[in-house]
């Protein structure tokens, strides 16, 4: 037969055991939740970085088209518009999430288009929207631009992963 003091001891042990178990469960829950959150954060960063690389690819394609094949003047402007809007939408999200400056790609959105549309060969082809090719001097300016500004995409990735 257990005495009252034995019951008290057993109850005390049981309460402690339950307390330990609850604490352990809470700890597991916290770790699990944090892990899930970390995983989600990491997944989100990976998702955004893929989007950034997709924008970079689009601008690389634009540069490749400008320097490599004959194009119609109005198509060039419209391609830049579509890519510019896509980049702008992404940068707005990145700005909210990671504080990425929304104007970081402005050189690609305006300066590159200026090089491509403010030259003699573009002007001459514009009215009839006829296919044309850039002169060597313009192609060099476009390539020089790309060489100088390609790092901007890495700067964006840095803002994502440094957060």
């Amino acid at each position: 037969m257990l005495s009252p003091s034995d019951w008290l001891s057993i109850t005390g042990i049981a309460v402690s055991a339950i307390g330990i178990a609850v604490s352990a469960l809470v700890a597991i829950w916290i770790v699990d939740t944090l892990q899930k959150k970390l995983d989600l954060t990491h997944q989100l960063k990976d998702h955004f970085s893929k989007e950034v690389l997709a924008v970079r690819e689009q601008y690389r394609n634009l540069v490749r088209d400008l320097t490599g094949s004959s194009q119609r003047p109005k198509q060039i402007v419209n391609n830049f518009k579509m890519t510019g809007i896509y980049a702008n939408d992404l940068l707005k999200l990145l700005n909210t999430q990671y504080g990425t400056p929304t104007e970081i790609l402005q050189p690609f959105q305006t300066e590159l288009l200026s090089i491509a549309t403010e030259c003699e060969e573009y002007n001459n082809a514009y009215r009839r929207n006829k296919k044309f090719q850039y002169r060597k001097v313009t192609i060099e300016a476009i390539r020089e631009f790309e060489k100088k500004h390609d790092r901007l995409f890495y700067d964006i990735l840095m803002t994502i992963y440094n957060e």
Partner: peptide, 8 residues
């Protein structure tokens, strides 16, 4: 609109 602006 669908068409873009030229900077100029």
């Amino acid at each position: 609109g669908d068409d873009g602006y030229t900077p100029s």
